[in-house]
């Protein structure tokens, strides 16, 4: 029993350390700039919502959030809809070049976006998609789709092929079987994949910033604007930062029960 207690203390300590920087951000977001710069205080002395008010009233701020959420959603939808059939193919069939294709997909997950920045910019400019949500969504597919295929393949491998066969024997056609029978069976895999796609698309900034200028600009890029003539507006910056954490929290709340399984990418 003593051991359990030591473990509890350890994990609590770790989580506290993990949360301190986040708390600091939260703390700052409720302070005025005078208080922030005036000296160190552990909690806001003059509690204020002003920083948040700035973000919620200024369209150029809140549009940033909307833009981010829009392209992330588009990305999740595209990722799932192309990755599902592909993962099925990889998990069930042997076909020409399957292993190499799989590796090639994965290697894109590993390719640093910095390599592709300029060509990306030119590619999307040349087809007239520059500064659109769809451009960012498509660009993020580069690393999300391979990851999605990888996770989903792991989950699908766990479903015995007898289910597929039984459905064919019962008279299901492939698309009907896939949607009606197969997808519900790997619900948690889909949930986890969506979570990962969301996460990586939400936190990525390099490509998102390069491919947008005004209309589809992500919140991350807008945050750099807090540097004004009078220096950095720390309060607003902190408030904006806090707001970027919230969508992630919501998503992980929805998939919390599947996450433990999904983090192993279905491969344990």
């Amino acid at each position: 029993m003593r051991q359990t207690r030591a473990k509890n203390v350890g994990i609590t300590l770790f989580i506290l350390l993990l949360l301190t920087p986040v708390y600091w951000l939260l703390n700052m977001s409720f302070k005025t700039n005078q208080e922030i710069l005036g000296g160190l205080t552990l909690w806001p002395q003059t509690f204020t919502f002003d920083n948040y008010a700035v973000i919620f009233t200024d369209p150029s701020w809140y549009n940033g959030y909307l833009n981010s959420m829009l392209y992330v959603s588009i990305n999740v939808v595209i990722t799932l809809s192309v990755a599902l059939p592909a993962a099925y193919a990889f998990s069930r069939y042997k076909f020409l070049g399957d292993k190499h294709l799989f590796f090639w997909l994965l290697s894109n997950r590993m390719a640093p976006p910095a390599v592709f920045l300029l060509p990306f910019f030119q590619l999307y400019s040349s087809i007239g998609l520059f500064d659109t949500h769809i451009a960012v969504a498509l660009a993020h597919c580069l690393f999300n789709v391979p990851l999605a295929v990888w996770i989903l393949e792991g989950f699908m491998k766990g479903v015995p092929r007898e289910y597929d066969e039984m459905a064919y024997i019962d008279g299901y056609s492939f698309p009907r079987f896939f949607i009606k029978v197969f997808l519900p069976m790997i619900r948690s895999g889909i949930g986890v994949t969506a979570f990962f796609a969301f996460m990586f698309s939400w936190v990525e900034l390099l490509l998102a910033r390069t491919l947008t200028s005004v209309d589809a600009q992500p919140i991350g890029a807008i945050m750099t604007r807090t540097i004004g003539a009078s220096g950095i507006d720390w309060g607003v910056l902190a408030a904006a930062g806090v707001l970027t954490i919230i969508p992630g929290l919501l998503v992980i709340w929805f998939v919390r029960n599947h996450v433990a399984k999904g983090f192993a990418l279905g491969r344990v």
Binding site: P160, M166, A167
Partner: peptide
């Protein structure tokens, strides 16, 4: 066909 494993539509 009836399999060794108990294969039914779980959903």
């Amino acid at each position: 066909m009836i399999y060794q494993q108990f294969i039914n539509y779980p959903t």
